[in-house]
Design a protein around this nucleic acid. Structure first.
Lengths: 203, 203
DNA sequence: TTACCTATATATAATAT
DNA sequence: TATATTATATATAGGTA
């Protein structure tokens, strides 16, 4: 975990593997120690060394035996139902990672679509979009519109802003205050940052 | 291990302790998993949760039982002689930390003495030193002198530098080149960086 | 082999959502 | 309660002595 991201696979180089075992074993026992003290729980760990070495046991072989005996005494049903073993541990991790991947993928797609929207507003022809892009864009705009309607409904009657046609925002700086205020209002309605200013040219 | 260095002691706040247990337990099992894969060793860990929760076992209760059975089968002598349990683990850590503390203390003392030396060279009266400081300083200077003699002997006959009295280094910048070169030579003899330039006014 | 160093990778405490 | 974020603290890989 340093100098280089290590791949989770058996280390073939002897010296490296032994060094890693030594370092990580020490680190692991330290963690077990900390956990049991910080949280006041009983915990134990056993790590076998390869060759003739003896296992390292924490916190003591007696405590480990006691804990493992309790474990053995649990009825099979409980063991399979409630315990977290390697399989469930890995399954949990996998599930969580998958979720995260999906989230990120979705987020990525939304951002891509937002880029499409801006490009189209900036003059890109809708024909140049792929089918998927077009669908996503339609969906995005649809959702934005609905959200906007909800908010407008929540706010009740509202003074509509004057129509603003293809005006470069930079020009608006020296435009009249009413239009700018209207746009501010719109931005607020849409929730501000990150939203695309659709003004009154939806679709 | 973040935002604040945590003291190794039971966490009294309930919510905090539970959150810590959850996070660290997950981290611990991840480590056991990595260790067993990276180094190809069998390892297991069991962490009991407080209340009604079930223990978390890695990699599986079967494997844990198998490992602990092996453990139980070891003769008592081996267990006490070769196994690393909590006591020996803590003793090892303590020993190592003590060594480190001694090293740092010694280093610290050397640095303090070096400061004394510089102060004295800069005009501080030797009378203002405490007995211990004076002794340390004497010792330091003695060692420096011996090291210097060794190096001079190694180098053979050497052109001695001209005497340089109480001269502010800043003045020396505009001093004559010979003196500066002599000082450089001396610094080199003494090993450079960190050494105190004693010139020819030892003691 | 052991210890030490240092750049990075991870773990995680406190906090916000 | 769970998750996300962020600032720090630790762990540790690869090298060196």
């Amino acid at each position: 975990m340093a100098r280089k991201k290590v791949t989770l696979a058996y280390i073939t180089n002897d010296a490296t593997r032994r060094a890693t075992l030594k370092k990580r074993r020490r680190g692991l026992l330290k963690k077990v120690n900390e956990l049991s003290i910080l949280c006041g729980v009983s915990a134990c760990a056993v790590v076998y060394s390869p060759q003739s070495d003896q296992p390292e046991v924490f916190p003591s072989s007696e405590e480990a035996k006691r804990i493992l005996t309790e474990l053995a005494d649990l009825p099979e049903i409980d063991k399979n139902k409630k315990m977290v073993n390697q399989r469930t541990f890995l399954e949990q991790r996998l599930m969580k990672l998958s979720q995260q991947a999906r989230r990120l993928e979705h987020e990525n797609k939304e951002l891509s679509t937002a880029v499409c929207l801006r490009q189209c507003l900036a003059g890109r022809s809708v024909e140049s979009l792929s089918k998927e892009e077009a669908e996503d864009l339609l969906d995005l705009v649809d959702r934005k519109a609905k959200a906007l309607q909800v908010r407008m409904h929540q706010l009740g009657p509202l003074m509509l802003p004057p129509v603003v046609d293809d005006v470069d925002v930079r020009e608006m700086v020296s435009y009249d205050g009413a239009a700018i205020e209207a746009m501010r209002q719109y931005e607020w309605i849409q929730g501000g940052g990150g939203g695309v200013l659709l003004a009154n040219r939806f679709i």
